[in-house]
Design a protein around this nucleic acid. Structure first.
Lengths: 199, 199, 199, 199
DNA sequence: AATGAATGAGCATTCATTCAT
DNA sequence: AATGAATGAATGCTCATTCAT
């Protein structure tokens, strides 16, 4: 039909389509037909590139998390002081939530709910992803403690977990808070920095 | 067949069974047959009491949230000072997460993911529930500010949102944090109290 | 609830409700719940008065046909000449189709379609009903032939069948003819009389 | 499994099977499983070719009516005089009723009963089909009137409706008349011709 | 007589997956 | 690589019928 679609980008087209459909419908309600249609590809083609629906979902998830993590770490790596570093990380994390991938928001909830039921392997994947994020934060905190920017008694693990919780919970707030929490993201970032410096 | 099941508690049996199955399988993967079987009831009986699967899910959700909210508010209402009050609220909230309803944990993720896709009306319900929680916290904060326990400049809305975010994020941490975060719940509570008093 | 419904007319209420619902929905699509509701009666009550759905349908059918047949025969019995007699029969038959029981129209189609599939016994019933109608017509024709009003060579059976066919087909025309055939019923009657006298 | 079934005729196989099953069981009682089995096809295949049960039914109906109408018109188009033409039409119509499609008989009753209840769109379809038949008859009558074969005062619409009624009613007679009306079909045809020429 | 909760067989429809081309 | 027709297991929901009260 459309001879305009170059073969090599088929896989990417499918993943983009899948990301959109999974975000809109959730894993279970997403239909392979819709994904194929959204990618302007026959259903069989999806199966040539991905073993099955769950695998496709995992690929999409991995891709999304990798991009988010890379972008965040890159931003924070530009800074010199640990405080600036943490500030950048928070800023980028929160910004991405509302701008770059509006889709990500929905997908995260799908990831959480599909862990353990719909998609085998997602649970493990989420543990890894969570650890990657927390370790990144922990490293910054450790660095700051070594440089004297943070208290010597700062509990690295506990603090990193608490920051993760707040960031994660903000995702939920953005969706189900009712208020327009977007305008309060800067406020959240500043308070977190204050709190860390106080602990 | 089984003449042992007293008629009047049929509805409750079904809701309990549904809660368990929804928590284990998620909304989409949960089969009405399994719920009926778990309730030792014929499938038709479920439909006599609940219009459809989505309605059953909503009833279970509403019941769960109401119980959690009531228990939390009751606990915090026993205290005199706002700090104690907030402390109780946090304590009960976090305790319930890990003990009373282990099921609740899973169900919350289902609720989040089903909003907007699988179950019409859940989105609205979650907004209401979120508001109920946040308002409860806000009231305590306001009370504390009036009594001079908290800073006069304390931003009630922002702080309530931040506390909600942290509590909510802790639910996620407990599930996907990898570490055994349960042992750190007390730590989280204490830090939150400290932070609130500092803001 | 309503203590105003006298018990003795329960059976009649149910039959009236059933006639309406069967006419509106057809046998298969008619739900016992709807019939019971329309009769302001509990579902179990329907089963106390009628063995099952098919039996209820048969009772309704028998009642309807009996009434129609009785009314028609009564009308034609008032006349003296066979021509007048036949005229009355046709007139009443056609009039009832469009006025007295608008419901009858729909029910007849249901009867026809349910014969042999949905409702055992309906086929036999329809044969009997058809025979009763045709015999009534045949008797009038025979009477007229004996009196010299019709040709001595008039084939009683064939003519009766033909009249039945025309009357029956008119029911179909009224429903699926598109045109408003009601205004043409008199015309049909007159032509039939003319034709019979010519044969 | 069975590699003996050529792919291209799948759709036709399904329609033939559906026609048989619908004729035997009626629309509501017909099971998609039976239709699929009768067509030696998986149930999903039926849904690949037809949106749903109702659509399949409509397709079968349309096909049947089209074939019947085409055959009848073809036959009558061979004749020169209007009387012969009408004679042919009646002959073929009546012959098809009892020979070519014994199935048609049952299906017609299903069509009538499903109009307005079970199958949306069938009512409209029947109106169209009825009109097509009546118009064909009307055209022949008009032709005959112009040629002087019929009375100049012949009411085309009324006569066409009456002929339709008689033919339609004969379908009913054949099924519920009790007598073996098949032997009388010629008689009916001749009488109708006589009557038309007399009107 | 009447009620209405409970039952469970039945069925249309969906959709992930396969495979011949 | 790609297609899309074919498959068939899976499942939500309906509704006639029963029965304890």
């Amino acid at each position: 039909m459309d001879h305009k679609i170059p073969a090599p980008c088929r896989r990417e087209r499918i993943m983009a389509a899948a990301r959109a459909v999974f975000a809109r419908c959730g894993f279970d309600k997403a239909r392979l037909d819709d994904i194929a249609a959204a990618a302007s590809v026959a259903k069989g083609t999806v199966y040539w590139h991905f073993r099955d629906k769950a695998t496709l979902f995992c690929c999409v998830a991995e891709d999304m998390v990798s991009r988010d993590l890379a972008a965040t770490l890159h931003a924070s790596s530009q800074s010199l002081s640990a405080v600036q570093c943490l500030n950048s990380l928070l800023e980028v994390f929160l910004k991405r939530l509302v701008s770059v991938h509006e889709e990500s928001g929905s997908l995260v909830f799908e990831l959480w709910s599909s862990a353990g039921t719909s998609v085998p392997g997602i649970g493990e994947f989420l543990l890894q992803a969570h650890k990657r994020w927390r370790d990144a934060i922990k490293r910054i905190l450790e660095d700051g403690r070594n440089r004297g920017e943070f208290s010597a008694r700062l509990d690295l693990d506990a603090t990193a977990s608490l920051i993760m919780a707040t960031l994660t919970g903000t995702i939920v707030n953005l969706r189900f808070g009712g208020l327009d929490e977007r305008s309060r993201l800067d406020n959240i970032r500043q308070r977190l920095l204050l709190a860390v410096q106080a602990w």
